[in-house]
Amino acid sequence: MTIRCCFILHDGFSLITLAAITDAFFVANWQAGKSLYTWDTVSAHGGPILAFGNHAISTDPLETVSARKMDIVFAVSSFDPHGLANAPGVAGFLRAAHRFGARVVGLETGGVAMARAGLLTGREAAIHWANRDGFEEDFPDIRLSDAPVNRAGRCLTCAGGASAIDLALQLIEEDAGTDLARTVRIHLLYQQGRPETANSLTSGDSPLVTKAIALMTRHINDPIALPDLAEQLGSSQRTLERHFQKGTGHSPQAHYLALRLTRAQNLLQQTTLGIGEIAAETGFDSLPTFSRAYRNQFGLSPSQDRKQTTTASVPRLYV
């Protein structure tokens, strides 16, 4: 049996995420000696679609494929998830494909389109970690998973990047068995494992710093003073400062402020919340204080950053 797939693209998608799936499917076909998977690449209106590295992918109009005939439908977006979610015909196509029995998959930020289509309500989903803040604000009834790949019935979501290979191998194992999935993994030279998260990239090797960052992250809107933070961690302030300097290269106060401002930037770029609301959400008592801190961190005001990045959902600062 041939499994027919459809990839729905929107400008600014991740080429590596798309290629991770299609390359794995190609190898599966090759190793099986038959066309296990076929796929169409479409967009709302058809024509060339640009990945975020300016690589153009040719697509057919969405109306040229039938939701009824699809076995797997992939919603593929990265920097502009709402562009895909709001593109003409996309939400209806996703709902129809799911209703007719297809598996529907959101790649990287494609879960936003699935959420807009009502497919993830009350479920758990995975999304790229840089987009969690905006997603949680827009869809408070959808739980976000810490796992890079999540399945809820026939709805699958994937955080993107290398984890898309994990997803592809999971689909191949489900459709054609463990042996073929293992053969594909070996051919792709892929060592399965969980990708790093934002916190794991910034905490160094110190368990104390890791715990401190986790506590800071839970208290973005009500910041904890450094002495109280150290006390809650069972540490002295001096020890905490020394570990931060060694593990991150800067002080705990600077790291905490950067975490708050990164969340502020996420909310600016990924939601329609007012600037005053965002200031309060990130623990600033006044708008002037927030604007001054934001300008010091990013080199421009919150209102300028929002205007400059209306189509960019991924923050530029990684602390």
Rank of each mutant, 00 (worst) to 15 (best):
A159E: 13
G160S: 06
G160C: 12
S163K: 15
A164P: 11
A164Y: 01
A164F: 04
I165A: 08
L167F: 10
L169Y: 03
L169F: 12
Q170F: 14
E173A: 11
D175N: 07
A176W: 09
G177I: 06
T178Q: 14
T178D: 15
T178V: 15
T178A: 13
V184M: 02
V184L: 12
R185S: 08
R185D: 08
I186S: 06
I186N: 14
L188H: 14
Q191G: 08
G193D: 13
R194E: 04
R194Q: 10
P195Y: 09
E196F: 05
E196H: 12
A198P: 11
N199I: 15
L201S: 12
T202N: 15
T202E: 10
S203R: 07
G204V: 06
S206H: 09
S206R: 06
L208E: 05
L208D: 12
L208F: 04
L208M: 11
K211D: 15
K211C: 11
A212T: 01
A214V: 01
A214F: 09
L215Y: 02
M216F: 11
R218K: 11
R218Q: 08
H219R: 05
H219Y: 04
N221V: 03
N221L: 03
D222T: 11
D222Q: 13
D222M: 14
P223C: 09
P223G: 09
P223V: 03
L226V: 04
P227I: 03
P227Y: 03
L229T: 01
L229I: 00
A230G: 02
Q232I: 00
L233H: 08
S235K: 00
S236T: 11
R238C: 07
T239F: 01
L240P: 05
L240A: 01
E241K: 03
F244H: 04
F244M: 04
F244A: 08
K246T: 14
G247S: 15
G247Q: 14
G247W: 05
T248K: 00
T248H: 02
H250L: 05
S251H: 14
P252N: 10
P252E: 10
P252L: 12
A254M: 04
A254V: 07
Y256S: 08
Y256D: 03
A258F: 02
L259D: 01
L261T: 03
L261K: 09
T262F: 00
R263A: 03
A264T: 00
Q265C: 08
Q265G: 14
L268S: 00
Q269S: 04
Q270W: 04
T272N: 11
I275W: 00
I275C: 02
I275H: 02
I275R: 01
I275Q: 02
I275L: 02
G276S: 06
G276M: 04
E277F: 05
A279I: 06
A279K: 02
A280P: 03
T282R: 00
G283Q: 03
G283S: 07
G283V: 06
G283A: 09
S286C: 12
S286F: 02
S286K: 05
P288L: 11
T289E: 15
T289L: 15
T289P: 13
